[in-house]
């Protein structure tokens, strides 16, 4: 089966995006805590199925911790600062399900798959191609950053608390300049290789990825509709 048209048993990025947009309403306004919690659990399930269990656990646990902390603080005497922390926490906590779905999309979508899926949506290349490059380039820049950080440690100009407070702009310079020059060089090589292999604007690309909707997509879209209704109307 290897090398055949790739059909993975997992949702396509299009339905994942739809789901994400459907649950964006959780960030604003008035949503029942039970609904948010159900959403967090559902997103955790998605992460377990299609990403890593450890990631799912991390997010769900954080949510539970924040929720418990809020309610614990509410039992304490009413100090203004506590009020503030509780409310801030309750607002930030709502971002978590969106972060989870975002993590799912960004960590499991490959650039090729993304380009193929977006082409299906007739999204213009001027938008989908740079985004695909971000998906490709992100781990590389992360690696470069770790490397630069090690180099800074060895030179004694590392990202320690003291350094950042004492001369912040200089520390920023030490990070940004090598990161930029290294990334530009790598970016050039990446672009040259892609162009030499025919990446172009003129014609439509085909794909070895099978991006037709499968059962997971339909289930996910159903879930999106359900949660949308729950978030908006309940």
């Amino acid at each position: 089966m290897k090398g055949d048209q790739k059909r993975r048993s997992r949702p396509n990025v299009r339905s994942e995006l739809l789901f994400l947009l459907a649950i964006n309403g959780v960030l604003i306004g008035n949503v029942k805590p039970a609904v948010i919690f159900a959403l967090v659990l559902f997103s955790g399930l998605l992460l377990c199925l299609f990403c890593r269990i450890s990631t799912a656990a991390k997010y769900v646990l954080t949510y539970c911790l924040m929720f418990s902390a809020e309610h614990l603080l509410m039992l304490l005497p009413g100090i203004s600062l506590f009020h503030f922390i509780i409310v801030i926490s309750s607002v930030l906590r709502k971002f978590i399900p969106c972060f989870m779905v975002g993590c799912l999309i960004l960590e499991t979508t490959t650039p090729g798959n993304f380009l193929a899926s977006m082409q299906r949506l007739h999204m213009p290349k001027v938008f989908s191609l740079p985004f695909a490059v971000v998906l490709r380039f992100f781990p590389t820049v992360k690696e470069d950053w770790h490397s630069i950080r090690s180099a800074m440690k060895l030179r004694g100009i590392g990202l320690s608390f003291g350094n950042v407070i004492a001369h912040p702009l200089r520390t920023v310079e030490y990070i940004i300049v090598p990161l930029l020059s290294s990334s530009i060089k790598i970016g050039d090589e990446l672009s040259a290789a892609a162009i030499a292999r025919g990446l172009g604007m003129e014609r439509d690309r085909t794909s070895v990825y099978d991006v037709r909707f499968c059962i997971w997509d339909h289930l996910l879209m159903l879930a999106a509709a359900v949660f949308f209704v729950l978030i908006t109307f309940v």
């Binding site: 090398g3 790739k6 490959t110 650039p111 090729g112 490709r136 090589e189 990446l190 290789a193 990825y209």
Partner: peptide
């Protein structure tokens, strides 16, 4: 720095 996709088959 040559590869575009992150999956080998892709």
């Amino acid at each position: 720095t040559q590869f575009f996709d992150t999956d080998s088959t892709g």
